[in-house]
Design a protein around this nucleic acid. Structure first.
Lengths: 254, 254
DNA sequence: CGTCGGGTTGAGGATCATCAAGTGATGTGG
DNA sequence: CCACATCACTTGATGATCCTCAACCCGACG
């Protein structure tokens, strides 16, 4: 019963997972959770750059990162990629195939990662029998929708700095939800990824970060980010003036 | 059995609805369809400007327009609205509350409309018992997700003209899906709505339309649009050069 | 006929994309 | 251990795009 194998399995089971309350098992327990647990496949570690699925692949499973982060991208006909979303641990990946049964985007690991894979047809089977799972599945899908809407909220903001502030603020919040610091984190993605996510040029993102640092709002070194003045960041994110109000700063005035 | 009341009901039932194959009933028939039909409420006509729900309202139902169109909007703290999406007949409205149980946006009728209202808890109940409905519900949600992704695809395009071309092209496709002409239609929304949807200034949208007309790609009079050169429109939508290449054209030459 | 809302058009200037060069970390091979 | 290559990022200069402000047009409607 308690063979090493079982222990290993238990250690990785949903009931032991720190993301339990954010993931599909939220609100489910006992034998019902076991039913879900049975169909979850824990895959070998994924290497940076590896893909969970590609455009056109038929919908086999949905995925959740246990750790590590992913981006989903589409490729425009002229070859360059658009970043549709970033996926932190606990956030469902692969829902883009729900509509047509085939994936419309690719999921790429931003760093080494571990994922759980849930065969989709089995998931819906179990969901039909476990009301709590059906509810939670819909809730998780809803969260994904909300993130897309937040993303649009960034894209529609005209000023590059607003988009960037919004991005950093939102990312912090998402880190908080998975139990990490919302003010000090390492960006899982490159500047280029951020740019393609925000609809900006790479250089504009870089300049935006620099500007926020100059204004004492954040502290950046490469991918390490610390949010120093969360209030000001929030203000900027919501269309506040560009100039810091208290911290008067001379801006290359001729 | 065939009292006028029954007839009236039948005429409006899902099984009689022209949108059946695009809507929740797709792939369902017989007694199972009846079960769905029973929980659907057909509401009195909705007037232009009326709202199906407001921000903060708890999730009571999802909605589908039988005719007419809606927009969903969020209000930024400084009061101006962002258009999250347009909803043509057959497209589910209200999914934004799936995640948190409360609506994050408002659904506003763009013109007079008729909607079906499906109480959400009953919908999930029936879906748990009718596998076909569960599948279709997920598929419809997936379509909504896809539209959001298409929307992002427009927002990320840098050039205003690309966004506008993409918008018109996509709208045409959606009209086609509901059995209307994809090349000749009346925009249900104002220029301002389009602008807030595309993240552009109202004037830029107006100029974009004019430009497309000058180039012989479309024919616009107010909200009436005819797509004259669908090929060229597609080309422009995907980042083709602004100037028409073959069809050399004198621009606004008297 | 006057007004009002929605739409178009024009002029000017700020923002951001583009091109281009420079920096700094990391890794590789001699 | 040091040159050297590579990659991610930063910084600078310039010009096009599109936002802003403003006027104007037009059709609807009282």
């Amino acid at each position: 019963m308690n063979s090493p194998l079982d222990l290993a399995h238990l250690r990785r089971s949903c009931s032991q997972c720190s993301l339990q309350q954010l993931c599909l098992p939220a609100g489910i327990s006992g034998p019902e959770l076991d039913r879900l647990d049975e169909i979850v496949r824990r895959r070998r570690p994924i290497a940076r750059g590896e893909r969970l699925f590609r455009i056109g692949d038929s919908l086999e499973a949905v995925y959740v990162a246990r750790d590590g982060a992913f981006k989903t991208v589409t490729l425009s006909e002229d070859g360059d990629e658009q970043v549709l979303g970033f996926h932190l641990p606990g956030e469902l990946i692969g829902l883009d195939a729900l509509g047509g049964g085939a994936h419309r985007c690719e999921a790429v690991a931003l760093g080494d990662a571990n994922v759980c894979e849930v065969p989709f047809s089995q998931l819906t089977d179990v969901a039909a029998q476990v009301p709590g799972l059906q509810q939670q599945l819909l809730r998780v899908i809803g969260h994904s929708l909300n993130r897309d809407h937040d993303h649009m909220g960034m894209l529609v903001r005209r000023q590059a700095n607003e988009r960037i502030a919004l991005f950093l603020h939102g990312l912090g919040e998402r880190f908080r939800q998975i139990g990490q610091s919302s003010t000090q984190f390492k960006l899982p993605m490159s500047r280029e990824d951020v740019a393609r996510y925000l609809g900006l040029a790479l250089e504009t993102v870089s300049r935006g970060f620099t500007r926020l640092q100059e204004d004492g709002v954040i502290d950046v070194h490469g991918r390490r980010v610390e949010i120093v003045d969360i209030e000001e960041l929030t203000r900027l994110a919501h269309g506040g003036e560009d100039e810091a109000p208290r911290t008067r700063r001379a801006r290359s005035t001729p």
